[in-house]
Structures are given as C-alpha cells and as structure tokens.
Write a protein that binds this DNA or RNA. Structure first.
Lengths: 142, 142
DNA sequence: TTAATCTTTAGAGTTAACTCTAAGTCAAGA
DNA sequence: TCTTGACTTAGAGTTAACTCTAAAGATTAA
C-alpha cells in the first residue's frame, strides 16, 4: 500500500507543494512513481520524511539534509560521515537548548517585571522591588 | 559615554550592517545621533539590543519585535500587551523545548544505529540488535 | 460518462532577514 | 594637514524556504 502526495503531506504536517519542492531539491530520491507518473509514498518514505523533519526542525539547512540523503543513497562506505553528522547535530541541539535556557530566564524576568507594572499601572517597578533590579543586572551583564 | 555602531555590533554579536537594517525597520527608535549624524549607542540601548536578541533567538519575527518596541515607546497604557507578549513567548519557548526533546531522541537513536553500523561496516544493525528496531518503532510511530 | 478533485510540470512570485555597494562624510593618529 | 578607517544614506542583490499559478493529465464517486 502507498500514499498519494496529499496523503503523505497530511501525515507529516507539510503541504504537497512543499513535498514537491523537496523532491525538486533532491531530498526525496527514494520516492517512486506509478506507471502514470504519480508519486507513491511508501511507509518507509514516510519515515524518511520524519527524519528530514527532525533535521529541519533542529535547524539543519535543506542543503545539508540533502548531503545526508546523498550519503544514504551512496551506500555503506558513507556510514562514518552519517554518524558524524548526527553527532554534530546532537551537539548543535544541546548548544541551542542552553541558549534557550538563558533566553527563558530573561523572558521570565520580563514577565515578573510587567506583572508588577500591570498591577500598579506604571513602570516604577525597581523602586517597589529593588531585588528585581539586581536580577536584571545579573541577567543582562554579559 | 556611548558606543559607535561598530562597537555596539561587536558587543551584541551582530554586524553594523544588521544594526542599520534593524534601525531602518524601526526596531531601534531609541538610538540617538550625534550632531554630525553618527549613531551613539548608550548602555541602555545595548540592553534593548539584548532583549531584541532574546526575542529573535527564541523565534519571534522582527515584525512582532517591532510591535513590542512600539508598545514600549507608546507608554504605560501598553503594559498589559507587553506582559501578554512575554507570556506567549514563554509558552512558545516551552513548546519548542518539548519538540527539540523529541528530535533529540531520534538523533540519539541514529547515533546508536550508525555507531553499530560503523563498527561492523554494514547496515544490518537490526539483525544484530533487535532491541534497536523496537526503539525505532517507538520513536517513529506517530 | 461525467464532474469534481487530485496530481503533474515548469516556472514565477513571495517573505524574512540579511548583505553588500557606492558615493560621500566624519574622526583619530602621525 | 593628511591619511586611514569607520561612519552615513539609498538602494540593489542574495539566500533559504517556501508558495503559488497555469495548463494538462489521472482518479474517484455518482
């Protein structure tokens, strides 16, 4: 059994347009066509799409995703490159997570700040709560 | 004391080009100019830049960042909108974090998979390690 | 069998966020 | 004072990733 481009698109949360675009960019060399020229997505193709989504969702550009797909098509000799790519991507994700953690601290500070401001209808927050000023200094020092 | 556009750029890890672009887009209405027309960034301006970086770094588009800056310039009446924006952004960051966590699981799986493949020089990983196949099914089921 | 809906292609258009260029102005050191 | 490098503007160009259009062919339900 196989899926049409529209069905496949729905399954992975993309549009058929986007899947055609990916195909044009060489990201879907594994997708076969029916005798009448329609793309037929297999279960395995859907898994490929999920890996592509995973890589794209963690910030890998389509060009590098294509590089990975090319390696996969090339065969067993490219296993080290592929392993390396995922190790690098793991590093990248963990760096991003750390960055987001820092951003989240600033956002939490702003929420506290504006909650106090909203309660009193003005921005004299630090006069009312000097500890928040200390926190601000800590968060924005670097 | 104040900083030139180049100094400010270096301090926040952007280029002078980018800061001029942000200015043109209306993101830096607070930056004053010297009598001869050069931008002079104050310490407070640098803090603004850091907040902009925080919002941009967590995926808020420049247009919405401009909306926030506009609210700040408008005065105390926009405090509720600003509070709401940061609450929404916090939600967004936490959703992203959860998504990245899921992606990271897939990446970790791929690392295990390719480590085994690299060790044996071929991709018969699931024959050697059926438990990994179970893990794959779990990770890619949805 | 026919209408509605889907799919095909090539190729044009869009959006966000830069990134660079040119031609001129300003500032700091020798 | 002169030179070097940083700054100014307006505006053009770039990149990534879609997003859409048009015209034609395929599939499906009535």
């Amino acid at each position: 059994m196989s899926y049409s481009i529209g069905e496949a698109a729905k399954m992975v949360g993309l549009t058929a347009h986007t899947l055609r675009f990916y195909d044009k960019e060489g990201l879907l060399p594994f997708v076969k066509k029916t005798s009448s020229g329609l793309r037929a997505f297999t279960e395995s193709d859907i898994e490929w799409l999920k890996i592509i989504e995973c890589l794209k969702g963690t910030g890998l550009p389509l060009k590098q995703i294509k590089q990975y797909i090319d390696w996969c098509m090339e065969g067993d000799t490219t296993i080290p490159q592929r392993l390396n790519m995922f190790i690098e991507q793991k590093k990248h994700v963990e760096e991003q997570k750390a960055k987001w953690e820092k951003h989240l601290e600033k956002i939490n500070f702003k929420i506290k700040y504006y909650e106090d401001a909203a309660q009193h209808g003005n921005l004299n927050v630090f006069e009312r709560n000097p500890k928040l000023l200390e926190e601000k200094k800590r968060l924005f020092k670097d």
